[in-house]
Design a protein around this nucleic acid. Sequence first.
DNA 1: AATTTGACAGCGA
DNA 2: GTCGCTGCCAAAT
Length: 105
Amino acid sequence: MKKAEFFNCVYEIVARIPAGKVMTYGQIAMLLGAPHGARRVGQAMFHAPEYLELPCHRVINSKGKLAPGYVFGGEGLQREMLELEGICFRDNGTVDLKRSLMRHG
DNA sequence: AATTTGACAGCGA
DNA sequence: GTCGCTGCCAAAT
């Protein structure tokens, strides 16, 4: 797997995440056959061209936590978008992975 | 070529 | 449950 392809695969998977579901970086990396590639998935997101219109706000870390805050204009905004799509949040501000994490099936 | 950085993950305190 | 350290791997400097 070449590096550019890894990026493209990430974009494709992210583009397939339905509204109301989320995926973790590690999970995506694993689907791509890179069990330790979670960080690269993050880099792929950061470098994601806008015209792809990826639902990158549906990609979160394994703890259900959202992006650090300087990405979508603040964690509050990302959380709001997710809530509008039906993502279930817990009291501590994390996503309820049990309900909203997409299973690869 | 070597060092630093990062939208992560897992484990221990 | 939170905080910090370590492991991992590619991009950027």
